[in-house]
Amino acid sequence: MPPFITELTHGVFRLWRRLYWLPEWAVVVVIVAGFVFVGWAANQIVFALLKLAVRRRDVFWRGVVGRARLKVRIALMIVAMALAVTVSPLDPGPSDVIRQALLFLFILTIGWMAIGASDMWAVVYLRRFNMATEDNLIARKHITQTRILQRVASLLIGVVTLGLALLTISAVRQWGMSLLASAGVVGIIAGFALQPLLTNMIAGVQIATDQPIRLDDAVIVEGEWGTVEEITSTYVVVKLWDWRRMILPLTYFIQKPFQNWTRETARLIGTAFLYVDYEAPIERLRAELERICRDSPLWDGDVISLQVTEITDRVAQVRCLASARNGSIAFDLRCEIREKMLAFMRDQCPEALPRDRLWLNSPPEAPPARP
């Protein structure tokens, strides 16, 4: 036993002799209360010094000190109670049980501190990025990486902390070792049971590093268009265009194909198809499309195109292309092009509207072939 513990024990025993007229449990309560008070006073002094030390440091250290106040106080109280139980006149049996329980709680508190430090790091790091800007590709990239890695780190810290805490309990440790050594089937069953969790955890790390999706990405999954609203450690929430939410496991975005409209940039080319008559003046339609796009605030000033992409037995298919800043604006621009092109053909260019032709007499003779 360390010398300071020995001297502390002798001092407590001298105090106990002076309080011999009290029952043993009352002496234990007095000793524990005294140690807890000393621990509380030490916590106040330590945090006053820490505040002075970090007042000129960056936000991370100030945030860590602020968030750790309660956790450090609990840890010091646990240490104080453990010392009090060690030097108190308790019987060895109850004293060992209490100290073992306090050690278990102390390890859990240390893990809680580590999770709080990782969360604080994520909060400070994410303050550099603004998701409210229109061109938020860099912000979405870093926020997605940070939040996924933060959740994975918290889960790993929690698992490791709980495992270390359980190792302090001899009965549980021996039971676990004997169970895994005598019945390999249990290990196989546990492996199958943990497979979805481990698979999604690995998929989360892959998504954080490779980033096939990010927060606020415009995606098409299962035939539905939406934006990535939330990425947790096990699933992804996609907010669909009509405000429904589609919940998908992380492994979906690793194992199945899907469309990401904002993978490298938010800009997108919108497509609008028109079906016109064979006699439609394509040049007039092309000029009208250019006028519509140049007058529209939705167009980004880059791509305009009108082409005949197909001819059927009744009509010609015309494809109108126009670029926009992002997917939602491109959708609105496509709708605007359809509406205004339809109004133009109806009011100013009726020969472009599809028509059915019926010959009442015999059709005109075909011109003779050239020699």
Rank of each mutant, 00 (worst) to 15 (best):
N260P: 07
R245V: 12
T265M: 01
G270A: 15
W241C: 00
A272N: 08
Y252G: 04
F258I: 02
L248A: 07
T262M: 10
R267Y: 11
L274A: 11
W243N: 14
E264K: 13
R263W: 05
I254D: 03
N260A: 06
L240P: 07
T271I: 14
W241M: 08
W241G: 11
D242H: 09
P257F: 04
N260W: 09
R263D: 05
T262F: 02
I247G: 00
N260C: 08
G270V: 10
M246C: 00
R244G: 15
L268R: 14
L240I: 05
Q259C: 00
K239E: 13
N260S: 06
F253R: 02
R244Q: 15
R244M: 06
Q259M: 08
R267N: 13
P249E: 02
R245E: 11
E264S: 14
R263F: 13
F253N: 00
L250Y: 03
R267E: 15
W261G: 07
L250E: 03
F253K: 05
T265F: 06
E264L: 10
L240E: 07
P249S: 01
Y275S: 14
T271F: 14
Q255V: 01
R244C: 02
Y252S: 02
R263Q: 10
W241F: 07
L248C: 08
T262Q: 10
D242S: 04
V276W: 10
F273R: 15
E264H: 11
T262Y: 01
R267F: 07
A272C: 15
P257R: 07
R267W: 04
Q259A: 11
W243G: 00
R244H: 13
A272Q: 15
L250K: 02
D242N: 11
T262R: 05
T251N: 09
T265I: 05
A272L: 07
E264Y: 14
N260K: 06
T271E: 13
R263T: 05
T262P: 08
L240D: 07
W261A: 13
T265D: 12
R245A: 09
G270K: 12
L240H: 03
Q259G: 00
K256S: 11
D242P: 01
F253T: 02
A272I: 00
I269L: 11
I247E: 07
A272G: 05
I247K: 13
I254E: 03
L274C: 07
F253C: 06
L268Y: 10
I254F: 01
W241E: 13
T262L: 01
R244L: 02
F258S: 06
F258P: 04
Q259Y: 01
K239P: 03
K256W: 04
K256T: 06
K239D: 02
I254R: 10
L248I: 08
P257A: 04
I247L: 09
F253P: 07
P257T: 00
I254C: 06
A266T: 12
L240Y: 01
L274I: 00
R267S: 14
L268H: 14
F253S: 05
A266H: 10
F273G: 03
